[in-house]
Amino acid sequence: MSTMNAQLPGVFYRRPTPDHAPFVEVGGKVEPGQTIALIEVMKTYNEVKADRSGTVSRILLDDGDEVEAGQGIVEVDEV
């Protein structure tokens, strides 16, 4: 198991807009480069991309939570 971290401080979002489904769910597979979350920094939305492949085992934050740079956001079981 390993953790993917936020590169930027800001507000965490799991989905592209409030009406959309989350980018990833627990049990879902991710590939490097895949968008897994958004972080809003001063009204600018930045995509968080997976840096490895694996299966999501835990999502550590909820929509609208504040996040620090370096904080863990998603845990994956690497393949």
Binding site: P9, M42, K43
Partner: peptide, 8 residues
């Protein structure tokens, strides 16, 4: 601190 939460 200029916080990331609001405008710039």
């Amino acid at each position: 601190r200029i916080s990331p939460f609001y405008d710039s």
